[in-house]
C-alpha cells in the first residue's frame, strides 16, 4: 500500500517545480532605467498595469497608454498594436525598453496578460535566476546529508550498533549523489551565465571540498574489511572532517573581516544569510523545494535501511541454518 505522504511529496515537489519554472519574470521601471542609463537597448520583460483605459493613437501607428509598473511607479507605455479586449484587460507583460527623454516604456511585443504573480527581473540573470529552486536545495542537501551521516557516526561510537553505521553510510551515499548533482548543475549554469564551467569562486571551492571529503570517506570505507573497524574509523573520520572543513572554510571567513566577498565587513553575505535579499515569492518556493528534498532524502534513506535490515536478517538466518545442519 502506498502511504499518503508519498503522494503528498510527489505533488509538493511537482507543484513547486512547476511554480518555479512557469512563473513569469517581470521587471519594473527601475530595471528598465538601469539599462537605459548605460545606453543598452536590449528588451526585458516588464509588467505594466493599465491606469486609464484610454488609448491615444500616435503618428507612427503605435498606441500610448497611461499606466504603472508592478512596483507602482507611474509611466506611459507604448504598445505596437491595439490588442483585442483592451477595455477589459488589467495590464500586460511586455518585452520592452525605456525611452528616457519622454519617460515612456516602449514595448516591442506583448508577451501576455498582466501577471498577478511574478518574480523580479535580475539584471544579467533573467530566466536563469530560476536555477535557485533546483540547484540550491541540492547543495544544501549535500551539507545536511553530511551532518546526518556524522550524527549517526557519533551515535555508532556511543552505542556500537551497526545499524547506525549503515545509516551513516547511506546518508553519506545520498550526500555524494546530491553533491555531484549540485556540482554538475552549477557548472552547466556557470557556463551559460559566466562563460566558464568552473572558475573557483568561494562557493565552487566549498562544494569541491565537500566532494573531496565524500570521496575520501568512501575510499576509507572500501579499504577496511571488518565491519566494526570500518564503522569506527569512518565515524572518526567524518567527525574530524566536520570540525575542520565546514568550520574553517564556510564559517571562519564569514566571521573574520577580510577582503573576500561575503566576509564580515562585506554587505553581500549571500542570499540566505542576509535578510531582505530575495523576493518573498522566490523564497517561499526555494524553502518549499528544500523541504521536499529533505523528505525525499528521508524516504530514500528509509528504503535503503529496509533493504539493509532484510539483508541482515537473511544473513542471520543463513548462519542459524548452517549451525542447525552441523
Amino acid at each position: 500500500m502506498i502511504k499518503w505522504w508519498k503522494i503528498v511529496l510527489f505533488v509538493w515537489i511537482g507543484v513547486f517545480s512547476a511554480l518555479g519554472i512557469m512563473t513569469p519574470i517581470a521587471g519594473g521601471l527601475s530595471d528598465l532605467a538601469i539599462f537605459a542609463e548605460v545606453g543598452d537597448t536590449r528588451l526585458i520583460p516588464v509588467a505594466m498595469k493599465i491606469a486609464d483605459h484610454d488609448l491615444t493613437e500616435q503618428e507612427d501607428g503605435t498606441f500610448l497608454v497611461a499606466g504603472e509598473d508592478k512596483y507602482g511607479d507611474d509611466a506611459m507605455f507604448v504598445l505596437p498594436e491595439k490588442p483585442a479586449g483592451f477595455s477589459e484587460a488589467e495590464g500586460y507583460l511586455l518585452d520592452a525598453r525605456y525611452d528616457k527623454e519622454n519617460h515612456r516604456v516602449v514595448a516591442a511585443e506583448i508577451l501576455g496578460d498582466y501577471p498577478g504573480w511574478s518574480f523580479p527581473y535580475i539584471p544579467g540573470l533573467g530566466e536563469r535566476a530560476k536555477i535557485i529552486f533546483f540547484h540550491v536545495p541540492m547543495s544544501w542537501m549535500t551539507v545536511i546529508a553530511f551532518l546526518v551521516s556524522m550524527w549517526f557516526g557519533i551515535k555508532y561510537l556511543r552505542k556500537k550498533n551497526l545499524i547506525d553505521d549503515a545509516k551513516s553510510a547511506y546518508a553519506a551515499g545520498l550526500g555524494l549523489l546530491f553533491c555531484i548533482l549540485a556540482t554538475v548543475t552549477g557548472s552547466v549554469w556557470a557556463q551559460f551565465n559566466w562563460g566558464t564551467f568552473w572558475n573557483w569562486d568561494p562557493r565552487e571551492t566549498s562544494i569541491f571540498v565537500l566532494l573531496l571529503i565524500y570521496g575520501a570517506y568512501f575510499t576509507l570505507r572500501s579499504a577496511i574489511e571488518v565491519d566494526e573497524k570500518r564503522a569506527r574509523l569512518s565515524a572518526v573520520y567524518s567527525i574530524l572532517a566536520f570540525v575542520t572543513v565546514p568550520f574553517f572554510i564556510f564559517i571562519m571567513p564569514r566571521i573574520l573581516p577580510g577582503l573576500h566577498p561575503g566576509s564580515a565587513d562585506d554587505v553581500n553575505a549571500g542570499p540566505v544569510v542576509s535578510s531582505g535579499g530575495m523576493d518573498a515569492g522566490m523564497r517561499v518556493i526555494l524553502y518549499s523545494m528544500l523541504l521536499g528534498c529533505i523528505v525525499l532524502f528521508g524516504w530514500l534513506m528509509s528504503i535503503q535501511m529496509r533493504v539493509f535490515r532484510i539483508t541482515q536478517k537473511q544473513e542471520a538466518d543463513d548462519i542459524a541454518a548452517a549451525e542447525a545442519i552441523s
Binding site: 517545480s17 519554472i21 533573467g126 530566466e127 536563469r128 530560476k130 536555477i131 533546483f134 540547484h135 541540492m138 545520498l174 549523489l177 555531484i180 548533482l181 554538475v184 548543475t185 552547466v188 549554469w189 551559460f192 530514500l300
Partner: peptide, 19 residues
C-alpha cells in the same frame, strides 16, 4: 535561458533515476 533551467532539472532527474 529557461531551457538551461530545464536542462538542470533533467540532470537532477537523471541523478535520482541512477540512484
Amino acid at each position: 535561458s529557461l531551457f538551461v533551467v530545464l536542462t538542470i532539472v533533467l540532470i537532477i532527474w537523471a541523478g535520482l533515476f541512477f540512484y
